[in-house]
Amino acid sequence: MTIDVHGHISPPESMSPFPMPPSLRDVPGMIERKLAVGIELTVVGSPVGAGAMVPVAGVDNYAQPTDRLRAFHDWLAGQVAAHPRHLRALVYANPFGDDEHLACAAQTYRDGAFVGFVINTSVAGRYLDDPAAGQFFAMADELEAPVLLHAPAQPAAGTGLTDHRLLEQLGRFCDVTIGVGCCVLGGWLEKFPGLRLVATGAGGALALLAEKLDLIYAPPQWARGGGAPAPPLPLSRPPSEYLRALWVDTASPSARALRANLEVFGADRILLGTDSPPLVGMESPVLAAIDGLPVPEEDRRAIREGNAKRLFRL
């Protein structure tokens, strides 16, 4: 069974008020298209809940009422029930949500139709090293639930980008890089070593930044004093040593990025992910890149299915 851990679908009522790719509403078409290339199961969710991934004036994805999110998750659970061989789903959560929001997200996960959470790598300009995210990470740790770290509609790293194409392919890529890096630097993997964090977008550029993260932890330019020292990070060892505790997907058309992730994270921490829908057509290039990796067939099978089965307990 080949498993895609990164796909999105949206209910019909979300398609009318918001500009969204039509592929998001065609669940049978997605299943048929993926079966044609050998992908039998897709883990779907929404990084905006019932909101809009395309920035819309006056729409605040983080202000969605509980009853609206509950209705959205009921729809997602219904899609899984209708396609049990081909779909699993994720609960959307705001990592800075209030007690009611987080309690509702936890209960939705406990109800059994979901296999993890999806949250944003930045929220209204705030990154995940903010201590206020601690309640969410404590909850995810207690539930032993995987968490997909996904760029938001309006990423902090995309501030100033007015062309939506640049926002999609540059701003969100950079937001994943910074947001997941902030998860490491914020000490969440230190405090909750059982956390199961998945960096989407192939982890952004994290595979290239291990040494840069360590320079944040121990900046040599301040080692001899002469400047105001920064407060210590909540880590007991260099940040690069926590990277192997992360998972990354393959949702990037770059074979070079995939090879770098193989070196930094390891074949046992890479998950097949296409971001399709909405990126229809990404399935074949991603599968070809995995087939082209210089690894034993056992490792390719792990990336295609075994790692996802283990992480999501499928």
Rank of each mutant, 00 (worst) to 15 (best):
Ser46His: 03
Pro47Tyr: 09
Gly49Ala: 06
Ala50Trp: 12
Gly51Val: 01
Gly51Lys: 08
Ala52Trp: 09
Pro55Lys: 06
Val56Tyr: 04
Ala57Met: 01
Gly58Asp: 13
Val59Pro: 15
Tyr62Lys: 03
Tyr62Cys: 00
Ala63Tyr: 00
Gln64Trp: 00
Pro65Leu: 02
Thr66Glu: 13
Asp67Pro: 15
Asp67Tyr: 12
Arg68Cys: 09
Leu69Ser: 06
Leu69Ile: 11
Arg70His: 10
His73Asn: 15
Trp75Ala: 14
Leu76Pro: 13
Ala77Asp: 12
Gly78Cys: 08
Val80Gly: 09
Ala81Asn: 05
Ala82Lys: 10
His83Leu: 03
His83Tyr: 02
His83Ala: 05
His83Asp: 06
Arg85Thr: 05
His86Asn: 11
Arg88Ile: 13
Leu90Gln: 08
Val91Gln: 03
Val91Pro: 03
Tyr92Gln: 12
Ala93Thr: 04
Asn94Pro: 10
Asn94Glu: 07
Asn94Ala: 04
Pro95His: 02
Pro95Gln: 02
Phe96Ile: 05
Phe96Glu: 06
Gly97Tyr: 01
Glu100Trp: 00
Leu102His: 02
Ala106Thr: 06
Ala106Ile: 12
Ala106Cys: 11
Ala106Trp: 00
Tyr109Ile: 05
Tyr109Leu: 15
Gly112Tyr: 07
Gly116Trp: 13
Val118Cys: 05
Asn120Leu: 08
Thr121His: 13
Ser122Phe: 05
Val123Trp: 06
Ala124Val: 06
Gly125Ser: 01
Arg126Pro: 13
Tyr127Gln: 01
Tyr127His: 00
Leu128Val: 02
